[in-house]
Amino acid sequence: MTDIIDGDAVAAELRSDLRASIETLADAGVRPGLATVLMSDDPASETYVSMKQRDCEEVGIEGIHVEIDPDAPAEELYDTVADLNADPEVHGVLVQMPVPDHVDDREVVRAVDPQKDVDGFHPENVGRLVAGNPRFKPCTPHGVQKLLDAADVETEGADVTILGRSDIVGKPLANLLVQKTDLGNATVTLCHSRTEDLPAKTRDADVVVAAAGVPEMIDGSMLAEGAVVVDVGINRVEADTDKGYELVGDVEFDSAEEKASAITPVPGGVGPMTRAMLLYNTVAAASRQTGVDVELP
């Protein structure tokens, strides 16, 4: 019987546990604050930001949202980020990507104060992660670790194959899983578009993490019997539905489920965990910036 790893349930438990940390901060007169900045009229980005703000309200984090005209000069975005960096009531700053073409997304990442970079993308925070002393773990990779832990998947000594080498998921997750930590000590193979004989790599893995952004590229024939499968992908594909599309992952679920011992669904797997870990990082940032110690779940 394959275990369907319920990201919604794990995320809900984590949000519940975070409330104790938020209450500790409140007793000291501190309310964590997360600022989201949107410079886009993309409906998906607007939805993501709305969901993040709703999550904040649910757990007691102060949500601050700033919208900037997508046609405005890049300097308006940089000035907004600078103002949020300087605001002591704001403990975390998140600029929703993508930004318009005339804005350098790398400069946007560097503009966020590393102490408030709750995405964990600033070069300083990336360096700390690689060095084994992370200030913030990037939300999706950390969420994957939490899901594996919740499903009692032992990573120590495990062979893990990750598909996708993005700065957001693949590379930071590989760094986390090889660290000498309770949720690390894995042997990691990082695959990408130039990898030869990908099925051979995935069939050798105890754990397969799909984060390539290619709909249903992994199927059951590419998995070892009893493998654990974590599907980070979320893709819109045309379908005969009221909306005209459906959401699928990077894994062909039905055939993979037949081989896997545990698997995350799409939606309802990694996605909820990404948002939950953003709250986690915001609470951690508030604790560090104010000197109020909290116990994080």
Rank of each mutant, 00 (worst) to 15 (best):
V169E: 08
T202M: 07
E257F: 12
L177Q: 00
G170M: 09
P141I: 09
R165D: 09
A211K: 06
V169F: 11
G170A: 08
E246R: 15
V153Y: 04
T161R: 00
S261M: 09
S261V: 06
V209H: 02
S166V: 08
T181F: 03
L177P: 01
A211Y: 10
A227F: 11
E216M: 14
V228A: 14
G268C: 03
A205F: 14
V270F: 00
L223Y: 12
S261N: 05
M273T: 05
T264E: 05
T155P: 09
A276M: 13
P265Q: 14
G268S: 09
A256C: 11
V229G: 06
D197F: 04
G164Y: 10
V266G: 02
A239W: 15
A151G: 07
T189C: 03
D206Q: 11
L147Q: 10
D182E: 13
M217Q: 15
E225Y: 14
Q179S: 08
G213I: 03
E252F: 12
E238M: 14
K259R: 15
E258Q: 13
A227P: 07
L247P: 05
P141W: 07
A186V: 06
S193Y: 09
T274W: 15
P199G: 03
V251Q: 05
L198F: 03
A262D: 04
L247N: 07
I263Q: 00
H192K: 10
R275E: 03
A260L: 12
S221K: 14
A205P: 06
A200E: 14
V209D: 01
T195Q: 10
G269Q: 00
D242C: 11
A158I: 00
G143S: 05
S255T: 12
P199S: 00
A186Y: 01
D204T: 02
Q179T: 02
P172S: 15
L247S: 08
A174K: 01
A158H: 00
T195I: 06
M273K: 13
G269W: 02
P141E: 05
D250Y: 14
T189E: 06
C139D: 05
D152H: 12
